[in-house]
Computed example of a mutant assay.
Amino acid sequence: MATLTVRGLDDETRARLRIRAAQHGRSMEAEVRAILHDLLMPAPPARGLGSHIHARFAAIGGGELEPPARDEAPRAAVFDE
């Protein structure tokens, strides 16, 4: 685990950090770790798997399907005994 020292932090920034840490129930050091983690970690994908698959194959076309004709009325399922 690395150690980082921040020098030259102005009083206003330190005060805001102290308040923010207190609001989250953390020490100032833990708050700085959380801020850095949130800012530097990649965000989860905004789209789901289906959207990614669609985007990947959209360039080649052929992804649009026509729904089948609904000429017949629905009927009950028949199960063999």
Rank of each mutant, 00 (worst) to 15 (best):
residue 1 M to H: 10
residue 5 T to A: 12
residue 6 V to N: 03
residue 8 G to M: 01
residue 8 G to P: 00
residue 9 L to H: 04
residue 10 D to F: 02
residue 17 L to G: 00
residue 18 R to A: 15
residue 22 A to I: 01
residue 25 G to S: 08
residue 27 S to Y: 05
residue 28 M to Y: 00
residue 29 E to R: 09
residue 31 E to P: 00
residue 32 V to I: 13
residue 32 V to M: 05
residue 33 R to F: 01
residue 33 R to T: 01
residue 33 R to N: 02
residue 34 A to S: 08
residue 35 I to A: 13
residue 35 I to C: 04
residue 38 D to V: 02
residue 40 L to P: 00
residue 42 P to M: 05
residue 42 P to H: 01
residue 43 A to F: 03
residue 51 S to V: 11
residue 52 H to K: 11
residue 53 I to N: 03
residue 53 I to A: 15
residue 53 I to G: 01
residue 56 R to A: 13
residue 56 R to F: 06
residue 56 R to C: 03
residue 59 A to R: 12
residue 59 A to W: 02
residue 59 A to I: 05
residue 59 A to V: 11
residue 60 I to W: 11
residue 60 I to Q: 15
residue 60 I to R: 15
residue 60 I to F: 11
residue 62 G to Y: 03
residue 63 G to E: 07
residue 64 E to I: 10
residue 65 L to V: 15
residue 67 P to E: 12
residue 69 A to G: 09
residue 70 R to D: 09
residue 71 D to C: 02
residue 71 D to Q: 11
residue 71 D to M: 07
residue 72 E to L: 15
residue 72 E to F: 12
residue 74 P to A: 08
residue 74 P to Y: 03
residue 75 R to T: 15
residue 76 A to D: 14
residue 78 V to M: 10
residue 79 F to D: 12
residue 79 F to E: 10
residue 80 D to S: 10
